[in-house]
Simulated scan of single mutants.
Amino acid sequence: MDIKDVVIDAYKTVGTELLLVGVAPSYAYEDGKRTDKIVGYKYEIVLLQHAYDKVSVKIEGDLRIELQENEAVFVALENLTLTPYWTPQGYRISASASDIKPVNPPKKAG
């Protein structure tokens, strides 16, 4: 079995409290070199339920959410997919989704 065939329950892995803290363009590559063509955006998300780990989620197409400097927004992801891959530094996770939307902050117990 190939590692690429492993299916990960993405929503159980990242949790439900997702905080968008950054957005950057994602560029097309030709012959292994980056072009100036923007094909989507990478959304940097803090996973509050996982010791503030971060994941960068790529979404193809137009910019969905624009952040102001030092702004953070709670979000929900649609059709989130996590794919493991190998690098010389060890296994990494690639994340993609079909959409991202702002949501209300989670309610705290108490």
Rank of each mutant, 00 (worst) to 15 (best):
D99M: 08
E17C: 05
S26E: 15
N70C: 09
A76P: 02
L48R: 13
K54I: 11
P102A: 15
D2K: 07
L48F: 00
E60D: 15
A28R: 12
N79S: 15
K107M: 11
A10C: 07
I93T: 14
G15T: 03
E66N: 13
V23L: 07
Y27R: 01
R64I: 09
V46G: 06
Y11L: 10
T81R: 14
I59A: 13
R92T: 00
Y11S: 11
P25I: 02
G40K: 08
G90D: 05
Y52T: 05
V73Y: 01
Q49R: 07
Y91H: 00
E44H: 08
V39E: 15
T35R: 03
I8R: 04
S98N: 13
D53H: 09
Y52I: 01
T87A: 05
Y41I: 03
A72Q: 14
I65N: 08
E30D: 05
N79M: 09
S98V: 08
I59N: 11
K101T: 11
P106A: 07
V23R: 08
G15W: 01
V23G: 12
A28G: 01
L19S: 06
K42Q: 13
L77G: 10
Y52H: 10
S98Q: 14
A24L: 04
Q68H: 10
I8M: 10
I100G: 15
G32H: 02
V23D: 07
D5T: 04
I45M: 08
K4Q: 09
L63K: 14
H50S: 14
V55T: 15
P106T: 05
V39Y: 01
L18V: 02
V46W: 00
K4A: 14
A28C: 02
H50D: 12
K101V: 08
E44V: 07
A24K: 08
V21S: 08
G22N: 10
E60C: 10
I3M: 12
V57E: 12
V21H: 02
D36N: 13
I45S: 09
K101G: 10
G22S: 13
R92W: 00
G40I: 06
F74T: 03
D31L: 02
E60G: 15
E30H: 01
T16Q: 12
V7I: 12
A95H: 04
N79Y: 02
T13N: 10
P25Q: 03
K101Q: 14
T16G: 12
Q89E: 13
Y27A: 07
Y29M: 11
R92Y: 00
V73Q: 09
L48N: 12
D2L: 06
V73P: 04
Y11E: 15
G90L: 04
